[in-house]
Computed example of a mutant assay.
Amino acid sequence: MAKDWQAVADAINTRMEQLGFSQKELSQRSKVSPATLRLMQQGADASRSATTLAAVSTALGWQADQLENVAAGRPLSDGDESVSLRDEVEALRSDVAKLRTGLEDLAARVDRLSKK
Rank of each mutant, 00 (worst) to 15 (best):
L103E: 07
R93L: 04
L92R: 03
E25T: 15
D80M: 08
A59F: 12
A54D: 10
R100I: 01
T51C: 00
S47V: 09
T51L: 05
R109N: 03
A7Q: 03
A59G: 14
R74D: 00
I12T: 00
A50W: 02
D105K: 11
S77D: 11
G73M: 06
R109Q: 09
S77H: 12
L92T: 02
E25Y: 10
E68W: 13
T58P: 11
W62Q: 03
D95Y: 04
L19E: 06
G61D: 02
M1H: 04
E81L: 11
E81S: 11
V70K: 04
R74G: 00
K116S: 07
V110W: 03
R109W: 05
K116G: 08
G102I: 06
E88N: 06
L85H: 03
A55M: 11
V89F: 00
E25N: 13
V32R: 09
K31R: 15
L19C: 07
G73V: 06
L76P: 09
Q42P: 07
S57Q: 12
Q18A: 02
V56E: 06
K98E: 07
E90K: 01
L76W: 08
L106Q: 11
P34H: 07
E68S: 15
A2R: 14
E81V: 09
A107F: 05
S114C: 12
E81W: 10
T101I: 05
A7N: 01
A54G: 14
I12W: 00
W62K: 04
L106R: 14
K116A: 08
F21C: 03
Q66W: 08
A7S: 05
L67F: 11
L99M: 09
L39S: 15
L85Q: 04
D45V: 12
G73F: 05
Q41M: 15
P75N: 02
V96L: 14
K24Q: 14
T36M: 06
D87W: 01
S49H: 09
R100W: 00
V89K: 04
V110G: 01
E104V: 11
S84L: 09
S114L: 14
Q41H: 12
A72S: 13
P75L: 04
G73Y: 06
M16N: 02
S82E: 01
N69T: 14
A35F: 10
E81D: 13
G43Q: 14
D4Q: 08
L53N: 08
D65C: 03
Q6L: 08
L76N: 03
A71M: 12
T58N: 11
G61T: 00
Q66G: 09
S84G: 01
R74Y: 04
Q18I: 00
E104W: 06
T51D: 10
S77K: 15
R109S: 06
K24H: 13
V89I: 15
S94K: 14
G102T: 11
A50L: 10
S114T: 15
Q23Y: 11
E17W: 04
E68M: 15
A54I: 08
A72L: 11
T51W: 02
A9I: 04
T101G: 04
S33I: 05
L53F: 09
G73L: 06
S33E: 02
L19W: 06
V70R: 02
A11E: 02
G61K: 02
D78M: 09
K24S: 12
I12R: 00
E17L: 11
S94W: 06
A35N: 14
A107V: 06
R15N: 00
V96N: 12
S27N: 12
D87G: 02
L39R: 15
S82Y: 00
S77N: 13
Q18R: 02
E88H: 07
V70I: 13
G20Y: 02
